[in-house]
Each structure stands twice: as C-alpha cells, then as structure tokens.
Design a protein around this nucleic acid. Structure first.
Lengths: 335, 335
DNA sequence: CTGTTAGCGCATTCAA
DNA sequence: TTGAATGCGCTAACAG
C-alpha cells in the first residue's frame, strides 16, 4: 500500500542507503544516480515518512508550544511570530492551550515530550518548581515566552512588565494627573498582574502620591471588567482623573464606561494601558498605550530556541525586548 | 541515556510486551504485575516514546491544521474550538499558517502528510483541483473547515455565507433602507468574498432595488479598508443610508469613519455586518451583525474528523451550521 | 495472563 | 560513490 524507501530503491536499481542520501540532499551521490532516484520517486509517488525518520535520527523537526489561550488576540500574535520563524527553519509546531492552569500545563508539557519534540516554547502563568522539574526531565531545550520565571534559570524572552506599567503611569503623571486609578489583573499572574501593579505603585509613590487602595480594582483582562471597574470608580466620593488599565481590552471597556456615563475621554478622564493590540487604534478616541511587541516576542523566542536546539552558543539567554509608549488620543492634561 | 520499554521490563522482571500492555491500559494484565510495572516505570522515570509508537502502530494521535492566519481573531477562535475537541479525544494538533496562498497550502499539506498525521483539518481559500489532488494522495481523512468547496466532494463544516449576507441585508431592507452600500471582500475568496457579495445582491434585487455598482467597494477585511470605503461613499452625489460590511472589522472601521465625518450611527447611516466577533460588542454603538459560530465550526469539524478517523459512520459529511442576526444598536430606520 | 518474535520506515555506521 | 547490515523504541500477532 504505502510506498517506502525500499520500493524506490528497487525501482531505481540502487540501495536504500542511496535513496536515503538523495532524499536528505547528501552531496555524495553521482548526479546520474541522483536523477534515477528522483525519477523513481516521482513515478512511485513516494513520500518520506517523517515518523520513521524521527525514530532513526532522533529528531522530529517539530517543537511544542504551550500557550494560555490561542483565541486571545495577544497570544495569537505571539503564536504567529513563533510559527513564522519555525517555518523559516523548517520546524512545525504542536500547539496546546493550557489556560495558565498549572496541572494542564504540566500535563501538556509531558505529552509534548512524549511526542519527542526537539524543543519547547512555554507560555504560561507562574513557573513553579513542578514546572522546573518537568523541564529538567526534558532532554530538549526549553524557552519561556512572555512568561516570567522568578528562578531565572530558564532562557526566556519577554518585555519588562514592571517598567512598562511604570512608564504608562509616568505619562499620566507628566500630564499633571495625581489621582490615578488602576484596573489590574490578578496578582497571581506574575507578568500581567503582579509586575504591572508594582510598576503602577512605584510610579505613584516616586511622584509623592500616597497609594490609595480604593483606586485599584482587579479585573480579568476582559472588556467587561474594564466597564465594571470604571462604574465603581465613578461612584467614589472623589473620582480619579486618569485610569491605567493593565490591558488594552480593559482600557477599551473603561473608555466606553466613561462615555456611557456622559463623560469624555480624555477631557474628563484620561485612559492609558499596556499592550498596543490592534484594537488600540480601533476605538474612539484611539488608545494611548505601551507597545508590547508580541509578534517579536514570539519570533525572537523561536529563534533563540533554534539556536539552542542546534547547540549554538547564545550570548543572551534572557532577553528583554523594548517597550514603547504609543501616544494616541486617550490621554490629556489633568482637569 | 533514555530509558526504554525494555529497561522497564528488566527492572520489573517481566517482558516488554507486558510493559506495553500496562502502558496502553490493556486489561489483560494481572493487577499485581501491573503494580510491579508501574513501580518500575516510576523508579526509572520512564516516558513512552510516541514516535516509536507511531511507527509501530501507524497512528500518531496528531492531526494537521491548515489555517489562513492564526493572528486573525476569527480563525483563532476556530482554532480554539478545534484544539478543545482534539484535546478531548486525546489528539494534538500541528498548526500551519498558509495565508490562503495556494502554493503554501499545498506545501504544508504535504509536510503534514509526511509527518503522518491521522487526519487533516483544512481552512483555506479556494479549493482547487491541485488541492483535491493533494487530499487524494493522503490516506487519511480530510475535512474542510470554514472553507467552501465548489466540488462538494470533501466533508466540510461551515455556515451558509450567501444566506448570512442575505439575511443581513434583509434586516436593512426591513428597516426601510433602499440605498444600501456594501464593503465587500475580494471576489476571489469564495466564502467571505464571493458568497457574501451575492447574498447582498440577491437581497437587493429581490426587494426590487436596482443594483448600483458604485455602492460596492472591495476591502481587505481590515479596519482601515472600512474607513476608506466609507470616505468614498460619503462623497457620492447621493450617499447611502445603510452600509453592509462583509466583516465586523470593516464594519467598525465604517462606523468610525461615519462618526469622524460628523454623522451618527444609526441616526444618519446604519451599519451591519457578518461575524459577531468579540469586538462587535466593544464598539459604540454596539454592532448589529450576523453571528457566525466560529468556535463551533472548529469544534464540529474536529468532532467530524475524529469520527472519520475512527471510520465511524457519519450521517452528514457536509454540515452547515446556523447563523443568526444579533440585534444591537448600529441599525435604525431609514431617514 | 504472559512471553517471543517480527517488523514499522528510515538513518547511519562500516566496508567496499 | 555505493551497498549491506544494524537498530531506533515500540506494537501486534502468535503461541503458550
């Protein structure tokens, strides 16, 4: 039924070793026989079996990608960066959603390892000792992608979330704002949650503003939680003049919530966030936000992984990509 | 270095066949020996090699997914549906972006087949004879996902794009509109382009409105092209009272373009589209649009594929999922 | 219930 | 430049 390398060998009147050589572009083959082999391949419609090749060579040219949720625009962008570079280096990716849930993350890492991936790109929540344990039993390189590792032992690619949040809040302060609210993520999330919150707090305190707990609400990164947080802020005895949201989506919810209350952005309340997703320029007013280069994070981490897989020397095993505040129209001077 | 099934067998004092049985949950093993084997596995840190298993069993429990662009929210949603169901049936997915480009599509289908995927989920542009040829050489089932096949020979899951567009335009007509513009996709795209355009045309003509070429602009599905199309419409001697956009994103561009011109939606111009992406409720006014159940399209097509892979009988090899117009606030009565 | 024996399709020595 | 032989780690008869 299936035509194998052996069938091709017989058809071409050579040995299977020779067929293997031409299929793998080994230069040690006389052009003439190479031609014969190609013709036989064509005639038989031979298609190399990558599984057999994988078993024999111990390389699968596929990498595993653990991602929180591919339907989230931010991660989808990272995934595209990963796949483009993977493709460029002739790797395929096996994609697994793990929803930042530890058990699921560990589980998919193990099945990926069973499938003998040549490397692992991990995008998740907190990196625990159990994660480290799982990574250690892998005999293949692992790189963390858009994921902070407190231990700092695994190669990683990310932005500095704390600094990005700090810069966002600084922009607000530079515009004269002092009563600045934050819509945060959960503090259990090291990057989008904890780090961004601390960037906010540091900026506030450095500016001599006393931290006010009632000005911080925890959201779930989604639009609706931005809407809800602002409803709460507007009922405060003294409402904020600016809002810093941990993600674009919550910021957009915030903007609409403000507008629904009959107020204007940025005339009455300014809004800034971190992400610079495509949606940021698809709202009115367009959102001022700190650009997080998601595609590049994916691309760079995949590139790093290829080097690791080839055992090439890498200068930097922990790369921090630059962020940048993108000024649009959602931030104005304090009233 | 790597511990194999043979090592486990020796450690547990049984044969490799027995180890294989317990690993594969074969009931024909005495509980006692099963226990011994589990202990040996634990002690040695044995991890089954799926590649070897794949070679021996001729099954890889992975399916190939060809997708236009994972960073596009619509497709990312489909992908999530696919992966959730795949996961449920213990399959993994290899994901390949092909940007609806024929050569790339054919190429990735072939590498996926080399990797011995157990099935193929194809999401692409037009299905040509070359595609069909490639699918035929696959010895595994293929299902088309959100992709129309003029030939109708491959199992598929999609909505009826022509009908969805028709229903959208009908709602406009029901609201008294007669001068209805369309922001279309490219006519080369069978589903989002051609079919939706024809749904528009049919609705128009059935209502006794003469088709006016100057009221149709071709966009590229992105926000910006919605903005541009409306700019053009507003300069027409007689501007439209309603706009039908082939996708949500273009519709949002249209809304903002209308607002930027000092007009109101829906007071001056109504806007409707097809997709019901998450963004639809993240604009003001919230977008009235025809819901296309992307997650379900992914989930159902993956479910169909599992049946095909198990050679189970399937009642329906061509499933059309229902669409539904979601009424929000972007459509009003004609002025 | 358990063990023995063959491959699965290929890469890779080692010789020639 | 080519071929023969071996084994990658496992499943799947088959026999017992």
């Amino acid at each position: 039924m299936t035509v194998t390398i052996y069938d091709v060998a017989r058809e071409a009147g050579v040995s299977m070793a020779t067929v293997s050589r031409v299929v793998n572009n080994n230069p040690n083959v006389k052009p003439q026989t190479r031609k014969k082999v190609y013709e036989a391949i064509e005639r038989l419609g031979y298609r190399p079996n990558a599984v057999a090749r994988g078993l024999a060579s111990k390389k699968t040219t596929t990498v595993g990608v653990v991602i929180p949720d591919i339907s989230n625009a931010i991660f989808a962008e990272v995934a595209r960066g990963i796949e483009d570079i993977a493709n460029m280096y002739h790797y395929n990716i096996i994609l697994c959603n793990a929803d930042k849930r530890k058990e699921k993350e560990i589980r998919v890492v193990n099945t990926l390892l069973e499938k003998q991936v040549d490397g692992l790109l991990f995008m998740g929540g907190a990196v625990t000792d159990e994660h480290l344990q799982a990574f250690k039993t892998a005999n293949v390189p692992v790189v963390l992608c858009a994921t902070t590792d407190e231990h700092g032992v695994i190669p990683s690619v990310d932005i500095n979330h704390e600094e990005a949040a700090y810069d966002a809040v600084r922009t607000l302060i530079a515009n004269g704002h002092r009563r600045i609210a934050m819509i945060s993520g959960t503090l259990q999330d090291p990057s989008n949650g904890y780090a961004r919150f601390h960037g906010y707090k540091r900026a506030i305190e450095e500016a001599g503003i006393t931290y006010d707990e009632s000005l911080v609400r925890t959201g779930n990164y989604r639009y609706e939680s931005g809407v809800e947080a602002v409803k709460y802020f507007l009922e405060l005895p003294e409402r904020p003049t600016a809002v810093f949201a941990a993600t674009d989506e919550m910021a957009i919810g915030a903007i609409h919530s403000i507008q629904d209350a009959g107020l204007k952005v940025p005339e009455n309340i300014s809004v800034i966030s971190v992400d610079n997703s495509r949606m940021a320029s698809m709202v009115r007013p367009q959102l001022t936000t700190v650009a997080q280069p998601m595609y590049d994070i994916g691309a760079v981490s995949m590139r790093l992984l290829t080097k690791l897989m080839k055992k090439e020397a890498v200068e930097q095993a922990k790369v921090i990509l630059p962020h940048e505040v993108i000024t649009r129209n959602s931030v104005g001077g304090a009233v």
